[in-house]
Measured scan of single mutants.
Amino acid sequence: MSIQHFRVALIPFFAAFCLPVFAHPETLVKVKDAEDQLGARVGYIELDLNSGKILESFRPEERFPMMSTFKVLLCGAVLSRVDAGQEQLGRRIHYSQNDLVEYSPVTEKHLTDGMTVRELCSAAITMSDNTAANLLLTTIGGPKELTAFLHNMGDHVTRLDRWEPELNEAIPNDERDTTMPAAMATTLRKLLTGELLTLASRQQLIDWMEADKVAGPLLRSALPAGWFIADKSGAGERGSRGIIAALGPDGKPSRIVVIYTTGSQATMDERNRQIAEIGASLIKHW
């Protein structure tokens, strides 16, 4: 067993022997301040990774656009098919120029040779490549099948209805392509620590998230040296922004954090800054 596999296998073990965790309302004060600064709703939840206990939450059962955070769930569904012998990570998928959609920095470079399922998941999570996500959605049967996968996990809230990039439209009061912070946090925890996926697939999923290259201005910008984070960000229309993450000190994750916002007129930089400040408060009061 590799060191990384050992780390993920012992996530519940280490967490069980940690000192009790206590909620700190100071972080919620910052979440509410972010709402004021952005002029928009902000949803927040913080779960203990081992027990699933909610440590703090704000608007945990209000719907927010998922945006690209759905790509972690998508690759979880792909990995479940791999575990069941219905898919192979090494299978190569070929596609054409007509398949390319807006923001496809990886797939646009491989029109000639195609990409493997493993490479597509890596591109979808680490670079948020939209064509990679659409190609992977095709392998599982489309958005409705991802929703069905989530329902089978016990998540009857999260739903995907459309493809990239239309799913980022974020129309107010439109339930399409949305989740709730509580539902997303619980589902992410199941994917990373539950028995739904094999140990190898859980490790692969967290490795992809740990290698995320496009979430630097968010929670990662607030992390002290030595902290662990595996995350996936999302951005959408109407001032929408979000991030889902597993993080913790001492090089291992111990909490799940989900943050979503929508309806702001603020710039992307300002949305990023507010999420980073929430992260800084979380870490300060850990």
Rank of each mutant, 00 (worst) to 15 (best):
D113I: 05
A235K: 02
S122K: 08
C75S: 07
S104K: 03
P25Y: 13
Y103A: 08
G142K: 06
Q204L: 08
L135C: 06
A185G: 08
D36N: 14
Y260P: 01
I93P: 02
E108N: 15
L89V: 11
I45N: 03
T107G: 09
D212Q: 07
A215L: 04
A124F: 00
H151Y: 05
V29W: 13
M184K: 01
T112A: 12
D212H: 09
K284D: 11
A40C: 07
A225T: 06
A123V: 07
A235R: 03
E210I: 15
S264W: 05
Q86F: 15
R92W: 14
P172S: 06
A211R: 15
Y44G: 02
L188H: 09
L196E: 09
P25S: 12
G114T: 11
L167N: 06
V31M: 06
F70A: 13
F58G: 11
Q86K: 07
I283T: 14
T179R: 00
L120F: 05
N98D: 11
K30W: 04
G251E: 13
K53F: 14
L197G: 07
Q203C: 03
V157E: 08
D161T: 11
P65G: 05
E108R: 14
L199R: 05
Y44D: 01
I259K: 00
D155L: 00
L191F: 08
Q204E: 06
E164W: 00
W208H: 12
T112Q: 07
G279I: 11
S254H: 05
L191W: 08
A211H: 15
F228N: 15
G43Y: 00
I125T: 08
L136D: 00
S51D: 13
M66W: 01
G236K: 00
L137M: 03
D48V: 04
R162Y: 03
T27D: 08
T112V: 15
G263F: 08
L192S: 07
H156F: 14
C121L: 03
G251I: 15
K190N: 08
W227E: 00
R189D: 08
W227F: 07
G194C: 09
S201N: 13
S128W: 01
T261I: 10
A230Q: 01
S68T: 01
D212Y: 03
L205S: 02
T158S: 10
K32F: 09
P217T: 13
G141E: 07
L120D: 01
A170N: 10
N134R: 08
P60S: 11
A148M: 03
P181F: 01
V157T: 09
L197S: 08
A77F: 05
E164G: 01
H156Q: 11
E102P: 06
L218N: 04
N152Y: 07
H94K: 04
I278P: 01
E87V: 09
T112S: 10
D48W: 03
A245V: 10
T69V: 03
G142H: 07
E35C: 11
M115T: 06
D231L: 09
R118N: 15
V42A: 07
S281P: 10
I259M: 11
P25R: 07
I140D: 02
Y103I: 06
L47V: 08
R220S: 11
P249G: 08
I140P: 01
D212E: 08
P25Q: 12
R118F: 12
A266P: 06
D113L: 04
H94L: 07
T69K: 00
V42W: 07
Y44H: 06
R91T: 11
D231A: 09
S128I: 01
N98H: 10
A182P: 08
G154R: 07
I140L: 10
S264F: 04
P249L: 11
L219S: 04
L219N: 04
M184Y: 11
S201H: 15
L120Q: 02
N272C: 05
T131H: 12
I171K: 15
A245W: 01
T261W: 06
S57A: 11
V72P: 12
Q265E: 06
G142T: 06
H151Q: 06
L111V: 09
P60A: 11
A266T: 07
S96Q: 10
L49S: 11
G141S: 12
D212C: 14
V214F: 15
R241Y: 02
A246F: 10
L160W: 01
D177C: 11
I45Y: 14
A77K: 04
N152P: 09
T262W: 07
E175D: 10
E166H: 14
P172T: 08
V78D: 02
K252N: 15
R92G: 10
K32I: 08
H151T: 05
Q203W: 03
I45K: 01
D231C: 06
A123S: 09
L247R: 00
A211N: 15
D113W: 03
R202N: 06
A245E: 00
L191V: 15
H110K: 08
W286K: 03
W227Y: 11
T267A: 08
L135I: 09
E87N: 05
I229P: 00
G263H: 05
R92T: 15
R241A: 14
T27E: 03
Q265I: 11
S128V: 01
G52M: 10
E195I: 03
I54W: 11
A211V: 15
T178H: 02
D177F: 00
S233Y: 01
K53I: 12
E270A: 04
A148S: 06
T147Y: 06
R59N: 09
E195W: 05
L247W: 06
S233I: 00
E277S: 13
L205C: 06
R159I: 11
L150T: 14
E270R: 03
L100Q: 14
G76E: 00
L167H: 02
E119P: 01
G226T: 08
G141A: 08
E46H: 10
T107D: 00
E277F: 06
N98L: 12
P105D: 05
R159G: 11
L136I: 09
T69C: 09
A40K: 05
R162G: 09
I125Y: 01
L192K: 02
I171R: 15
L160Y: 02
R176D: 05
R159E: 12
L79K: 00
K30L: 07
L160N: 04
T139L: 12
K144R: 05
T179A: 03
G251A: 12
E169D: 04
A132R: 01
A266D: 07
Y95K: 02
L111E: 11
G226S: 06
G251S: 12
R59H: 13
A77T: 06
A148I: 04
Q274W: 06
M127S: 09
E62K: 04
L79S: 03
E56K: 07
E164D: 02
T187H: 11
N168Q: 06
M115N: 05
H156S: 11
R189Y: 04
G90L: 07
I229G: 02
R255W: 01
E46V: 08
V82F: 09
D33C: 05
L282D: 01
S221T: 09
S221V: 08
V214G: 14
R189F: 15
I244L: 12
S264N: 05
N130Q: 12
K252I: 12
R159T: 14
A132H: 01
I54C: 07
S68V: 01
A84N: 15
W227Q: 00
E277R: 12
V117S: 03
N173L: 06
G239Q: 03
Q86M: 07
S240T: 09
T179P: 00
R238K: 04
Q97V: 11
V106E: 10
Q203Y: 04
T107P: 01
D174G: 09
K32H: 11
I256M: 12
T186I: 04
C121H: 01
I171H: 15
E61F: 15
A77D: 07
N50C: 12
P143I: 10
L219C: 12
T193H: 15
K213D: 03
E175M: 15
A245T: 08
P217E: 14
F58M: 11
P60Y: 10
P165Q: 06
R59E: 03
R238A: 12
L191C: 13
I140N: 05
S233Q: 01
I206D: 07
F228I: 15
Y44S: 01
A200I: 08
E164C: 01
I256N: 01
G194A: 12
G194K: 15
